[in-house]
Amino acid sequence: MTGYADVDGKRVLLAGTGAPAVTALPEAVLRLRYHCPNARTRVLLTRQALRFVTETTVNLVTGAESGLDEWSDEPYTAAPHVELGRWAEAVIVYPATLHFTGRLALGLSDSPLLLSLQCTTAPIVLVPSLPPGGVDGRAYRKHVEALHDRPNVAVLPPVAGYSMTTGEQNVGAPAPFADALGRLDELLRELAAAPAGDTRPVQEVR
């Protein structure tokens, strides 16, 4: 029996943004598949994430379907944000930069991923990765407060970790992927149990 019964069997979208911690995303895919062998997995990378990890790396290490979070220059054939929104039954953004967290909180929709997340009712777990001082910044606190109003969104607080810039320990590293997977499992149950039209906010896990 899996420890993540509500995630197992779901179509899970793993999105990675432009923080160094995105290098752990391929391992996260493997962990998800190990713990939830019946889940289907797709990976979406922002253009900024390609500074640290590539589609080729994801494909070679995990075999997962992957793509870039950008509008195609090809002639119009489909709406990628609609396809993403219909496909994903659960979403984990690992890691989520301060920039991405802010764009989501502000309602911006200038990429297929953001537009799909603004429109979906599927559970979304954000795992922020912040620079030194970011967790105490007014901008981050306001963004998290805004995301609290969305019943399908949960934000995992950053944890203490090593800063490659300062060489010091500070609070800003993304929470462990196992925590994100566990929160997603809980959120799936909470949403399934909520009355139709329930808009009660989901609180940040501490």
Rank of each mutant, 00 (worst) to 15 (best):
L45F: 05
A105D: 00
V93P: 15
D110R: 13
P26F: 00
S129L: 03
V202D: 06
L114P: 12
A192P: 11
S109C: 11
L147F: 09
V155D: 00
E168Y: 12
A154C: 14
G85H: 02
C119H: 13
F52W: 12
R11P: 10
P26Y: 02
V159I: 12
L156Q: 06
G137A: 14
P80V: 00
A19D: 01
A173S: 15
P20H: 02
P174G: 04
L98D: 03
R183L: 07
L181F: 04
F52K: 10
T17N: 06
R200Y: 00
H148D: 04
D185T: 03
W71P: 10
G67S: 12
D149I: 00
T97C: 07
A28K: 11
L187Q: 13
R189F: 05
A28T: 10
T41I: 15
G3A: 10
L130C: 07
S66K: 09
A122P: 07
L45V: 06
Y4G: 04
P195S: 06
A139L: 13
P132A: 08
Y34I: 01
G133K: 05
V58M: 08
H99D: 10
V53Y: 05
T54Q: 10
G16V: 05
R40Q: 12
H35M: 05
P158V: 01
T23W: 09
G133H: 04
L68G: 13
Y34T: 14
T121W: 09
V125L: 09
P151N: 08
A105V: 00
G16P: 14
T62N: 12
K142Y: 04
A180W: 03
A21H: 09
G18A: 06
G85S: 08
R40C: 00
A173R: 12
C119I: 00
V61Q: 15
R103M: 11
L25I: 06
L68K: 15
A15M: 08
V171C: 12
G16E: 02
D6F: 08
L44S: 06
G18N: 06
R138N: 08
G197L: 00
L108E: 11
E83V: 11
R183H: 02
L113H: 09
L32A: 12
A160N: 09
I124L: 11
Y140G: 06
L115V: 01
G18C: 05
R183N: 02
L104W: 01
Y140F: 15
R86I: 00
V91Q: 06
G133L: 03
L50T: 15
E204N: 07
V82P: 11
T165M: 14
S163F: 04
R138Q: 12
P80L: 02
H35R: 15
L14Q: 07
L25W: 06
P123Q: 00
T166F: 09
A39T: 08
E186S: 13
R47S: 10
G134F: 03
A178Q: 09
G167N: 04
Y4F: 15
D179G: 13
H35Q: 09
I124G: 04
S109G: 15
V159N: 07
P151Q: 03
L108W: 13
P75V: 00
L25F: 07
N59T: 14
D136P: 13
L98S: 12
Q118M: 11
G137N: 14
